[in-house]
Design a protein around this nucleic acid. Structure first.
Length: 564
RNA sequence: CGGGGCAUAGCGCAGCCCGGUAGCGCAUCUGCUUUGGGAGCAGAGGGUCGGGAGUUCGAAUCUCUCUGCCCCGACCA
């Protein structure tokens, strides 16, 4: 490709709307352009990268035995009513009507369509197992699209769905997909981790997420420092503290705490460690108006864990000021578990405290010297907090560390949820009807492009892993319009590389060297072939490696050695 | 959805408070010079100041309204 016949579209200045580095570089390098909130056009260079990612994903899915299909993006609403998600999915599901006023949705995922398809096409156990995938645009009407294509509303996703007679068979395919995903991210050249995950709105049991590690990631991942254990913080279990709870030494004492609003204020005002305080949060209950959740002062509520408790309404909703006042007759900052007239659930770590401090259910008062069972008897204990760095790993080995990750893949064992709802069944060997069990496996193809940049860049621009670089190499001639030797050499090398099937860009613009270098380092092509009068007497060109920054001279006749 | 911010040339911004001929840098185009790391000089093109309504002799500027974009949102219990 010659730049004179191409659309480079690089920008010198960073558009003000871009916050994270990958978004800034994708705009500056001319990979994408924003068209509306969460909607992007892929420019030629960006599309080349996207296609390379897509092809690696496709090859590995096929290698693992999955078969490609393509389903429509627009789906009839009745399929979603059949699965129950017309009610459950919420405003992320974009609903629309056609000219006959028939309701449709813009597909955020395809469980319904694929289950319907398989239920129509498959009727015998002999046709199983089956693993179908597609690579297709999805639409999710995100509350807050951000970070460019990292969290956009329309995005490219690979989604696969497998169908099985037995849980064992599902498990086998799940393991194959796990392995295929590892191969994909290794081929992409990314620093990634598979982590245990919550199954979220899709439902089901076993689940792993694949995360690319990057500080700008939106998820917290907990790792053991001495085993393979890794889990999304939503899922990572906080173990109960070791040993017996200390016995009560202090007596219950109500103290005045005027203008103390926060836990930090409280700890400071009473000169106690924040770890000797508890905070009490009121959330909407499933059977009662409100339920109290009690956490140690320095801990944070894990909303996912809390939402899974049967006493708590889904989705988790914090009680309003009015609901709080109705239930406990005080303001939010003064609630505590002592004599609380509602159901109390305490976190394992809070349950281990003795002689602690809490709100007195009376504005501007707190209790000190509080002890479970003596001062507060009616409660249950659960794991409802986020783990923190230094907690013991739930696997039993080592301590947890926490890092940020970008979720780029997610695999689930769905079970029978959709097959049941849509009556997807086959006849068994015994001639009996059996509902199928399903797995589903997603990869965010467009998000991978952004994640790769987050992990591979420097102050000059993108440093693409070789497997997904838009070009394998770029020819950068110095003052080609002045030197017929440079021009001839550049053209010859371009022709030779093209004929050898190398994806090479030839910068034939009449630009100054500095402009060319800056553009190509921004775009991040791995190898720069710099052709100038300087080295031509010796029949050499200069090679610059974008990743390492190393420069070297190479005899022109050996040029193919670069691509072996 | 709630809170905050922004909207002026392709991009980045000033002008607005205090109403009076729409500006700067970069980019673009032309010419000359320059040529191994985002050049210099001279000139040129490019704007319904996000839309609508109002106040006024006069609105980018003041008022109202709509739209779009960006940021933040248990941490207080």
């Amino acid at each position: 490709m010659r730049t004179s016949q191409y659309l480079l579209s690089t920008l010198k200045e960073t558009p003000a709307s871009a916050e994270v580095i990958s978004h800034q570089l994708m705009l500056r390098a001319g990979l994408v352009r924003n068209i509306a909130s969460g909607l992007y056009t892929w420019l030629p260079t960006g599309l080349k990268v996207l296609k390379k990612v897509e092809n690696i994903v496709r090859e590995e899915m096929q290698r693992a035995g999955a078969i490609e299909v393509l389903m429509p993006m627009v789906q009839p609403a009745d399929l979603w009513e059949e699965s129950g998600r017309w009610q459950d999915y919420g405003p992320e599901l974009l609903r629309l009507k056609d000219r006959h006023q028939r309701p449709f949705v813009l597909g955020p995922t395809h469980e319904e369509v694929i289950t319907k398809l398989v239920s129509n096409e498959i009727s015998s156990y002999k046709q199983l197992p089956l693993n179908l995938f597609q690579i297709q645009n999805k639409f999710r009407d995100e509350i807050r699209p951000r970070f460019g294509v990292m969290r956009s509303r329309e995005f490219l996703m690979k989604d696969a769905y497998s169908f099985h007679l037995t849980a064992e068979c599902l498990d086998e395919t799940y393991q194959k997909m796990f392995t295929a995903y590892c191969r994909i991210f290794e081929r992409l050249g990314l620093n990634y981790r598979p982590v245990l995950a919550d199954t979220g709105s899709i439902g089901g049991e076993t689940s792993h997420e694949f995360h690319v590690l990057a500080d700008s990631g939106e998820d917290d991942i907990a790792f053991s420092d001495s085993s393979d254990y890794a889990a999304n913080i939503e899922k990572a279990e906080a173990l109960a503290p070791q040993g017996e709870r200390l016995s009560a030494k202090q007596s219950l004492n109500k103290v005045s705490t005027p203008n103390v609003k926060t836990i930090n204020d409280l700890a400071q005002f009473l000169s106690v460690e924040i770890t000797k305080t508890v905070k009490t949060l009121l959330v909407v209950g499933s059977k009662t108006p409100v339920v109290a959740l009690v956490l140690r002062g320095d801990h944070q509520l894990n909303e996912i864990k809390a939402e899974h408790l049967p006493q708590i309404a889904t989705p988790l909703t914090f009680a309003s000021d009015e609901e709080i006042f109705t239930a406990v007759n005080c303001k939010a900052g003064s609630i505590g578990p002592v004599n609380l007239p509602i159901e109390v659930i305490i976190d394992r770590s809070a349950a281990h405290l003795a002689d602690f401090v809490c709100g007195a259910n009376d504005d501007n008062f707190h209790f000190t010297g509080v002890n479970w069972d003596r001062d507060c008897k009616d409660y249950s204990v659960a794991d409802i907090r986020n783990v923190v760095a230094g907690d013991p790993s739930p696997c039993g080995q080592g301590k947890l560390e926490i890092k940020r990750g970008i979720e780029v893949g997610h695999i689930f064992q769905l079970g029978e949820k959709y097959a049941q709802a849509m009556n997807c069944a086959v006849l068994t060997e015994q001639g009996k009807n059996k509902i199928l069990t399903m797995g589903c496996y997603g990869i965010g193809v467009s998000r991978i492009v952004a994640a790769a940049i987050e992990q591979n860049h420097d102050k000059y621009g993108i440093k693409w892993p070789a497997a997904i670089a838009p070009f394998q190499a770029v020819i950068v001639p110095m003052n080609m319009h002045k030197s017929s030797r440079v021009k001839e050499t550049a053209n010859n090398i371009y022709k030779q590389l093209q004929e050898a099937g190398i994806d090479v860009l030839f910068d034939d613009r009449k630009e100054r060297p500095g402009v060319m270098f800056a553009d190509h380092e921004l775009i991040g092509t791995p190898i720069l072939l710099i052709i100038g009068e300087r080295n031509l007497d010796a029949q050499q060109i200069e090679i610059k490696n974008r990743i390492s920054g190393e420069k070297s001279l190479l005899d022109i006749k050996n040029i193919m050695s670069l691509f072996e």
